[in-house]
Design a protein around this nucleic acid. Structure first.
Length: 274
DNA sequence: TGATGTGTTCTGCT
DNA sequence: AAGCAGAACACATC
């Protein structure tokens, strides 16, 4: 499940491999993914050059010449990767862009078809729901704004961290890992945390996201970068997916519990409620 | 065969 | 108003 570090890794891969290149066409095998008039849409990006790639939370914005921006959300099982014209189309490839001068292709692959690739004018794209209502980016927010954000809301911290309107970029993996690192119980209320805990959580989120980006993301459910290489952070996970194993910090037993209708992994011994 | 998990949006409730 | 619960989406995996 791509979260901020995986999306950032993809953004960097695209910047390295495709910025400056011109799209000469495309094909869509799944109208739902483009959520629009597929033919008009693909025709509109033909002969446009990829100018740059931006990331907002878990969203990717591919800025094209002609004042156009492709908005990509990978949701749970979306992938973006490079192939050549010699590579056979794979079963869940949903959308393929062709590039000039090479046989290179950018493919959007999505087993479960929750992902979206949509085209907007660059001026308009940030007004769309899902972008205009994003909270501050988890990697960019400063300590003071972070503390103010938590003080301003009274809600369970785990669902808050997953709410992209509250803070943008974390998903289940990094939310659980960050709470573990800061020794905060996932049921704590946002406004009830001490200044020291808030500060520690802010640091933990920054450290964990940066470290995960350094490892090119976490590969669970087949995540891989645009070059097809899996990430390496899965070896460093301390609570996510480790139910019943020993806590690496205190030796307690890691628990999984439904909190806010999502699974939360934590150590009940070193992440206390009070 | 059927339950599960996953991100987001939507609806409806308190 | 704010936050929460549950449903819906789609499908491989167990």
């Amino acid at each position: 499940m791509p979260e901020l570090p995986e999306v950032e890794t993809i953004a960097r891969g695209l910047r390295r491999s495709l910025v400056g290149r011109t799209i000469v066409g495309g094909v869509c095998y799944c109208p739902k993914i483009v959520a629009d008039n597929e033919n008009r849409w693909l025709a509109a990006v033909t002969d446009k050059k990829l100018k740059g790639v931006r990331r907002r939370g878990k969203n990717l914005l591919l800025d094209l010449t002609g004042g156009l921006t492709l908005w990509v959300h990978l949701k749970m099982t979306g992938h973006l990767y490079l192939r050549t014209g010699d590579d056979p189309v794979e079963p869940h490839d949903r959308l393929i862009f062709y590039f000039r001068d090479h046989s290179d292709q950018l493919r959007f692959h999505d087993m479960r078809r929750f992902g979206r690739v949509r085209l907007f004018s660059t001026a308009d794209v940030m007004n769309q729901r899902g972008l205009c209502d994003l909270g501050p980016d988890a990697l960019e927010i400063g300590p003071k704004d972070f503390a103010a954000l938590f003080a301003a809301h009274a809600r369970l911290i785990k669902p808050a961290l997953l709410d992209q309107r509250f803070l943008a970029g974390l998903g289940n993996i990094y939310a659980d890992e960050s709470l573990f690192s800061a020794r905060i119980h996932p049921r704590r209320l946002t406004h009830s945390l001490s200044a020291a805990k808030i500060s520690r959580l802010h640091e933990a989120i920054g450290e964990i996201l940066q470290e995960a980006i350094g490892k090119m993301g976490t590969s669970v459910d087949n995540y891989a970068g645009v070059d097809g290489r899996p990430g390496g952070y899965q070896s460093y996970l301390r609570v996510y997916g480790r139910v019943g194993l020993d806590c690496p910090r205190c030796g307690g037993r890691i628990k999984r519990e439904r909190i806010g209708s999502r699974s939360a992994h934590y150590c009940p011994r070193c992440q206390r409620l009070c």
